[in-house]
Every structure is written in structure tokens, then in C-alpha cells.
Amino acid sequence: MSTHNSPTEPAMSPKRPYLLRAFYEWIVDNGLTPHVLVDATYENVVVPRQYVKNGSIVLNISPGAVHALHMDNDAVTFSARFNGASFSVYLPMPALKAIYARENQQGASFYDSEYGMEEPAKAKESATERLEVVEGHKTEDSNDPTPPRTRPNLRVVK
């Protein structure tokens, strides 16, 4: 199925923001921890650069890890604590590459074609397929029995 409109089809807005919000709600409603994979090299991304690895960053966006989460059709914004310091995060929608549950990696990956960028060859696969495990982050406030990771984590901003 092509994401490009033919001359007879009406122009449609990108579906990524709608799918992102739906998967976020689904993950949270099931008591799991939503994480997003972000292309930190994308224009206007505002994240703590010291936690970017290979041009990407994975962020815990659970209600207990972020403050003032806002997802609109253009971007995701929130504030969070990184090593105790508050930081305002700005994620333009095209920079978001995936959303998944930390506990079971179920979620969706997104491809660049709807934002006018080249689509990778594997984009032909379903966007809702099971994702590969990506190193996640653990919030300091969680009661998760897994050992703490050395990667960055988010905490509740009070």
C-alpha cells in the first residue's frame, strides 16, 4: 500500500501522530512502560545530547517519568529529569522512529516516507510487527526488580 496520494485521492495528513497517540494509550492502558526511539540527528530535536548514542536516543515517556507530556500533530514535548536536572524535550514528529512497551517490545515502528524522506527497504513490512529489543531505560522511581542500567533514565518532575 502506497502512502503517496494519486491525483484523484484527497491529500491526507501523516498518520504517525495518530498512531503514536494510539499506541501510547494502548501501552499505558495495559500497565506497561512506553518508550520512544528518536532520531536525535533530525532537525530541531531537543534532547540531552550526552545520552545520544549512534545518532539515536530511547526515552521513557510513561506518565510517572515525564511532566506535561503533550503530543500534537507536529511534535511531542515534555519535561523530565536526567541525572537530577530538569530538561525540556522537543521531538518533531518525523524524528520519532518507534514506540514500544519496555516490558515486551510490542509497539510500532515508523518510516520516513510519509514525511517525504526515502523509505528503507524493510518498510514494506507491517508497521505493527513485533519490534527488536532496544536497550531501554529504567526510571529511578520504579519498583522494577531488574538491575539498574548505566544508560540515562527519567524521573518524575515535581
Rank of each mutant, 00 (worst) to 15 (best):
H4M: 09
A85F: 06
S142M: 05
V89I: 11
F23A: 10
L19S: 07
M93T: 13
V45M: 01
S56R: 15
K138F: 12
L37M: 08
M93A: 13
S109D: 15
V46C: 07
V28T: 03
K124Q: 04
V36G: 00
L20P: 02
S86M: 02
R151L: 10
A123V: 10
P17F: 05
D74Y: 14
V47I: 08
S6A: 06
R102I: 11
P14A: 12
S13P: 06
L19D: 09
V58K: 10
P94I: 08
Q106M: 15
D72V: 03
V133C: 04
S86C: 01
A22E: 02
A22P: 00
A40D: 01
E129K: 15
P63L: 08
E25F: 00
S6H: 10
H35I: 06
M12Y: 09
Y90A: 08
Y51V: 02
P152D: 00
H70G: 02
H35R: 10
S109M: 14
E129G: 05
F82P: 00
E118H: 14
T146K: 14
K122V: 12
L96E: 00
A22Q: 03
N73V: 06
P7R: 05
R49Y: 03
E118G: 04
K122Y: 15
P92N: 15
M12Q: 14
A75L: 11
F110V: 14
N83H: 10
D74P: 01
P145H: 15
L37C: 05
G64L: 12
V76L: 03
V58M: 13
V66E: 01
E103M: 09
V89W: 00
T146W: 13
K15P: 06
L19R: 09
S56P: 03
A40C: 04
I61A: 01
R130E: 12
E114F: 01
Y90P: 07
G107V: 12
S2A: 10
H67N: 12
S142F: 11
L20C: 03
I61T: 01
W26L: 09
S88A: 09
K53E: 09
M93R: 10
R21L: 02
A80C: 07
